[in-house]
Each structure stands twice: as structure tokens, then as C-alpha cells.
Design a binder for these strands. Sequence first.
RNA 1: UGGGGCGUCGUCAAGCGGUAAGACACAGGAUUUUGAUUCCUGCAUCCGGAGGUUCGAAUCCUCCCGCCCCAACCA
Length: 565
Amino acid sequence: MAQTDTISTNDFIREIIDEDLKAGKNSGRVATRFPPEPNGYIHIGHAKSICLNFGIAAQYGGTCNLRFDDTDPSGESLEYVESIIDNIRWLGFDWKERQFFASDYFERLYQFALQLIKDGKAYVCDLSADETREYRGTFTEPGKESPYRNRSVDENLDLFERMRAGEFPDGSHVLRAKIDMASPNIVMRDPVIYRIKRGEHYRMGNKWVIYPMYDFAHCLSDALEGITHSICTLEFENNRPLYDWILDQLLEGDRPRQIEFARLNISYTVLSKRVLIELVTKGYVKGWDDPRMPTVAGMRRRGYPPEAIREFCAQIAVAKNDNLIDVALLEHCVREELNEKAPRAMAVLSPLKVIIDNYPEDKTEEFECANHPQNPAMGARTLPFSRELYIEREDFQEDPPGKYKRLAPGREVRLRSSYVIKYESMVKDDKTGEIIELHCTYDPDTRDAAPADGRKIKGVIHWLSARHCVPAEVRLYDRLFGVPNPAAGEEEFTSYLNPESLETLNTCFVEPALKNASPGSRYQFERLGYFCADAKESTPDGRPVFNRVVALRDAWGKIAEKGKA
RNA sequence: UGGGGCGUCGUCAAGCGGUAAGACACAGGAUUUUGAUUCCUGCAUCCGGAGGUUCGAAUCCUCCCGCCCCAACCA
């Protein structure tokens, strides 16, 4: 199962849990939760949290709830709820029937708020948002108490009930916890716990006009669900005293404990939800599942296997250091998984016609070709061979640089799973000088054997029979986003956009069997990279579309690069 | 600036007083009908800095330096 393969062996969170267990807390139970707000699609940063929470639950024989933290009606929607459910399942995790919504707790949360008021620990405040900010003070100066801070319990009760009844306009009143306006921790300076906010809630409709704030709703939701360890990101560390304060006022006995870890950052990748939302709504990408997006849906469509994402989450481990993970690690995890699982297939992205002069015009042979060079269990398929072929344009060089081992004037090269061919001549376009076709001869004795005379053939290239192959469209997605460099004035997300992030190749060919590649199936196109049949699109004329998942490691690229330098 | 958190290889990250794991990246080499894969090899005398305690410190103490978070009626 996916649930247990994602646990790093040495994380500080486990130490805390082990301590709690040893101390006999929570009667030996471990219960975690993944609490997304349904205001966008989840991305790989969420995947880290998902693997962590579900992983810990599995490891301790505990449970992990899925809870939608839907306490702010603006921006939340059912579409997001559905996408989140779909994406977590795809990642390989199962929360059984334990699916909850903070909005289902609104009535109970309201009762908790009433209790706080009755105990003299919360009050209705009439200050405007601006005034509230002024009264809050600064980092160095304490805040001032609100003039409404000492209203009577009865008045507060009356006002809060009328807030709920919709008697007041948005922003005119809030409910605040009465804590300490002089606290050095600004979170504790009488935080707002309820606000009036009209606008339809995607689940509750217009039933409520007051909504609890995160700090009030989250800790109580955790408690209501019997969560033992509430794992969140580092920016909530300042909120932990408030988390504890609220529970202290209202509950007795075992209580959930908040633990923070560092959120994920990946080089060249934007994981800001705000920016991702903007990219989608302003049309910079085709949608949340655009293969360039770092969302789970985007990575899925691009062809990242869920196993690779889980492996990545296990590799990066969990700690409290700020981090910037090299995107190469993610790509490594994808290659590692795909190298083992993806069948090999022949494809030519930029075709160059090759005519085998000494091969009969109407002859066709069928060559057996292993689907995986190291795994015979994956079987084989037959590839048709004929007089006219396509090879990759890059696999012929008229004037080859040193160390180049593919086709060139006077040279021989092996066609993978087929014959050794020898260059004879080329045909160029008179006007442009572009190479139109190559003429070669084949050595009939080299079909499944090395040349009899013992000469070494260094290069092996991929090929396709021109008569048999099928046209396709290939999309080469590169890393879409660059890390913004504030020093260079890069603050606007549009400046992250890489204009070369999507290259569509229209004159590609793939082997016949891939004409009807099943959506989402992944292949290694020999020497080119890993590709995934797009699950959503094909071209108007019915050609299959393949997304490049990730390129192969490229030793020649490095050699060529060095040659330049 | 007050409070909170964090500083171990280019990037992550173990380490919890006994003399610096591992992964990615990188660099060499071997095998290879994918310049892929696989396989070897190398890669922190040093743990933000300076003092101190100790037979012995990345680990304990002191001071200093740097980075991140908090002044939404967002989460």
C-alpha cells in the first residue's frame, strides 16, 4: 500500500509522537488529518503534507482524516473539493469514511463561542478593520484595549446573536477573544475569532453570515475529530499559543497537539497558491491540470507516476529548516520509476528520411523488439522494416564534432534492433541547402549480430519505417516557472513565465502500435525521454498527443557543452 | 525593532558528549544494439563565527552573526 512507503526514518515528529505514547497520552491513539481549504487544486507541497500525515497514521496503526477547512466562503467551491478528493486518491491514499468539513461544525463552533462569551473570555467589538489594526500596536509597542472590551456578558450575548441573525452589515462587528493586548506575540492581542461575511458558501448557502476564523475553527475541529497530532507548516508557530489557549478555555482531558514542519520549496517551481490561482484565472495556462503546473493534477496529466511523487516526498524528509529542493531530485524520482516501468517505444520527433539503396522496394521485414532491455518479462513487439525510414535529424551530422558516434558521411551506425547501415550520399534542397534525404546501404548480416569482420559499431540510433509509422503530436514541456529574483525586480508572477515552457512538435512519428495508445500510458521513446499519452486531447485530425514527462539523462549534451567551452 | 523559529557538503538531511550516515548534484572509470540503465571510484580533518567547560564537543555554556515567520475581519 501507498500508505507506508513514504516515511522518512528519522523525523522529529515521530520523536514527539513516541514521547506522547510513552507518556500514555490519548490512550495510545494516533490520529492525524490533512486539512486543505477548497480554494484551489492541491500541489506537490500539499503532497508532502499528505504523505506525512497518512504515512504517520499508517505507521502507528492510527487514522488520518480528510477535512476541508472551509471557513471562508470566498473562493471555495465544490469543484475544488472534488479535485482534492480525486488527487489524493490518485496519490494512493485512503481515508475511508473519515471525510469531514469544518462547515459541518459551524453550529457547534457557534456554541463554543457562546460559551467563551458567557465565561467573559470573548467580546463583540465594533472597531473597524483599520481601527483594529491601529489598536493592535506594533512589534515594539503594546496594543491598546478596545473600548468595547468590557461589555457585559449579556450585551455580548445579545450582540453576537444578532450578528448571527444578520442584523449588522459586513465588517461592522467581530467577536474577539479577550486575551492580552500587551502580549509580545501579536497573535494573542485579542484575536478576531468571528467575522460577518455575506456571500454564498458553496455548501452552506446563505445559512450563515458569520464565519469562524481559522484560529478558532481549526483547533476545535481537531478536537471534535479526536485528532491527536495536528501537523501544519512553520508559519503557524506563532499561532500555537492561541491554538492551545482556545482549547484550554473550552475543553478538558486529552487535546490535540500542534506540530510544525517546513513547507516545501522546489527550485524553478512556484508553489504559491495565490500565484497558481492567478495563472489559471488569467489564462496564462490552460487550467489547473495544465501539464506545466506543479499541481497534482498537472503532474498526473504530464505523466508523473504517483509512486514517483511519493518517493520524492520520502526522500526530502521532514524537518524545520527552510529548504529549496533541487528540482533534479524530483526528476530523478520520476526517471527512476519510469526507467523500470515504462515500456520502450520507437518515435522520431524531427524526421529525416533515409533510403536504403540496397534494400528491395517492396520488401517488409518484421523485427522482434524487446519492450524493456533489462526486463524480458515485459515482452516484445514487432517492428516493421522497409526501404524508406525516418531517423532523428540530430542523428546525422554532415560535419560531426569530435566524439560524435552516430551517422555521418563515410560512417556506419546501428539501427536499434535492426541492421547496421552505412552512409552513401545525401540530397540537399538546391535553394535552402537543407538536407532532404540520406541514401544508405545496409549490411544484411548484422540483423541480430555484430559485423562478421569484427568492426565495432559505436552508435545506435532509433528509426521508424516511413511506410508504417503513424503521425503524432508531441509536446515538450520544460520547467515553466523560474524562481523570482527580487533583486532583478521580478515580483510579478508573469515574469516567472518561461516562453519556452511549451514546444509543440507537429511532424512527429511513432511506431504503429502507439496509434491507439491508451490515455495516460507512459513510454520511453528510445533515446528521447519519457512520454505520456495525453489523457484529454488528441489533435483535430485524430493524431495522438504525447506529453514529455521528463528527458533522459543526457551525456552527449554534456560532452557537446564541454566541447563548446 | 518585540516575539517565535532555523543555521551540518552545491541542494536536501542523519547526528542528541566519544571522534561527520545517506540521497540528489558533480567528477572520473567499467560494461552496454538506448551517449539511457547498471556497476565501481572520488566528493565536509569539518559542522554560521568567537570564546569557554571537558581526557574528549557538530553535540553542553556564553556572546556574536545570518536567514525565515508574525502587525488579514486569509488559511
